[in-house]
């Protein structure tokens, strides 16, 4: 069970808002880069987020570039999962490749600061503050296998190949 507080963001949170291009020189220094996570969407986020908390977006979360640094810094901030109504394709794949759960559910029902509990097995997000249960779309099987190994590299190290057909 994942537990934490919801940090609410709007629609179209781009990878530029998560890790801006102007900080590209910090990409080989991930701990430094992670201090700026989501800075252009909410400059106070990095200071407030606690291990276990959730990033909650609207539609098309993670649109934009292929920078894997986006899910990396979100994970480094201690975020246990990103919830959104929909995700951009590359961000979704990158998050799974880094072992960061990305869950598609009706986030309109979640408010900033709500306490959430996520049951990955059952596919349920329990909003403790509101006492509502939301179901999230099952992660596709091929991707779940990668997530379960903690990401793509550990998965390939273990199996030596893709085992998803």
């Amino acid at each position: 069970m994942l537990k934490g507080k919801a940090f609410k963001f709007g629609d179209d949170i781009s990878t530029d808002l998560i890790v801006p291009g102007r900080l590209v020189h910090l990409r080989s220094n991930l701990p430094e880069l992670a201090k700026h996570v989501l800075e252009d969407a909410d400059p106070t986020f990095a200071a407030r987020v606690k291990p276990g908390d959730f990033v909650v977006g609207g539609n098309n979360f993670g649109l934009g570039s292929s920078r894997e640094h986006a899910p990396i810094v979100i994970k480094m901030a201690g975020v246990s999962a990103v919830l959104a109504k929909s995700f951009a394709r590359i961000f979704f794949r990158n998050a799974i490749n880094r072992g960061l759960p990305v869950l598609i559910c009706d986030t309109d029902q979640i408010k900033e600061g709500d306490e959430l509990e996520v049951d990955m097995e059952a596919g349920i997000v329990h909003d403790v503050t509101n006492d509502v249960n939301l179901t999230f779309k099952p992660i596709p099987k091929a991707m779940l296998a990668i997530l379960d190994e903690g990401g793509l590299i550990p998965y390939i190290q273990k199996y030596g190949d893709f085992k998803i057909e």
């Binding site: 292929s66 894997e68 490749n97 091929a142 590299i153 893709f162 998803i164």
Partner: peptide, 18 residues
């Protein structure tokens, strides 16, 4: 199509992707 750094690392190594 665009992918992340890990996906391309694996494509470099295996010559394939999913």
């Amino acid at each position: 199509t665009g992918m992340g750094s890990s996906d391309v690392a694996v494509a470099f190594a295996l010559g394939k992707t999913w």
